[in-house]
């Protein structure tokens, strides 16, 4: 009997945790998109007014971002300034694809960012600004979709975790 109770408590705890983690992912996605938007705004300023070289601009972007995102842009900047130094679009694509799974963001945002990377640094100022603004527009769309999902599913997944665990416990007992 004692053993059964302990088992039930463990199942309840695990189910609750799964629900909370799911909920945190729903909450985290719009927040990360927002951070990315701020960083792109920074990039826009660096290109438009500062005419900062791209690697420096990416480093400064990394400074305004929290960890999982900042690492990506610092990596791209580092790769560009490194001995081998490939093209922007190669480095951008490789680093983003490798690290995207560690963020809470989905395919839509990734696609917008990859499209931006393909044209970054390769044209005049006006054109660059257009590309950055286009990427920002796409991210804004994704952000509002992400917020809707958050409202709908954040609480749901939290209670679903607890209730699911409770169901399993009832069946076990």
């Amino acid at each position: 009997m004692m053993l059964k109770l302990i088992g039930a408590a463990l199942v309840l705890f695990a189910g609750t945790m799964i629900g909370f983690v799911q909920a945190a992912r729903f909450a985290e996605r719009p927040r990360q998109i927002r951070h990315l938007l701020h960083a792109l705004q920074r990039l826009e300023t660096e290109i438009g007014y500062g005419q900062t070289p791209l690697p420096d601009a990416l480093r400064r972007m990394a400074l305004v971002l929290p960890p999982p995102l900042s690492g990506m842009f610092a990596d791209i900047a580092g790769e560009l300034r490194s001995e081998r130094g490939g093209t922007v679009s190669e480095s951008w694509e490789r680093v983003l694809s490798d690290n995207w799974s560690s963020t809470s963001m989905r395919a839509g945002e990734k696609e917008a960012m990859l499209r931006l990377g393909a044209s970054l640094g390769g044209s005049g100022k006006e054109d660059q600004l257009k590309h950055v603004r286009l990427a920002m527009l796409q991210l804004q769309d994704e952000e509002s979709a992400a917020r809707e999902e958050q409202q709908r599913y954040e609480k749901l997944s939290r209670s679903l975790g607890v209730l699911g665990a409770a169901l399993v416990v009832i069946l076990m007992l």
Binding site: P53, A57, G85, V88, G122, G124, Q128
Partner: peptide
Amino acid sequence: RALLEKLTDYSLYA
């Protein structure tokens, strides 16, 4: 292409 990108420090706009 790589040479041009390197020469301009990846920043044609600058």
